[in-house]
């Protein structure tokens, strides 16, 4: 059982984590954050293995991984 957190206000919406997640658990939010970006959002914790791929590719280091 694992999960991640995303700091939405610091996310710039590049979407690289969405591509990195082997389980497709990350989606881009429809909402804008204060900087005008659509931030990434963690959809469900059920299947997360804590592989950390999202953390590895995140250029803004706004993801934390819990395992």
């Amino acid at each position: 059982m694992s999960r991640i957190t995303i700091d939405k206000e610091k996310c710039k919406g590049c979407g690289l984590c969405v591509l990195a997640c082997p389980k497709n658990l990350i989606v881009m939010s429809d909402e804008f954050n204060k900087k005008g970006y659509h931030p990434a959002s963690f959809s469900s914790g059920e299947d997360c293995t804590g592989c950390g791929f999202c953390f590895q590719v995140c250029p803004d280091v706004v993801i934390e991984v819990f395992k």
Partner: peptide, 28 residues
């Protein structure tokens, strides 16, 4: 659950000025 991946001490908790998707942040 334990936090296993996070910003370490040598990286400040600051928003970097790089464009979305820029590689600099990862290298930093």
């Amino acid at each position: 659950m334990k936090k296993i991946l996070f910003k370490t001490e040598a990286l400040k908790d600051t928003v970097m000025s790089y464009c979305p998707g820029c590689g600099h942040g990862v290298i930093h």
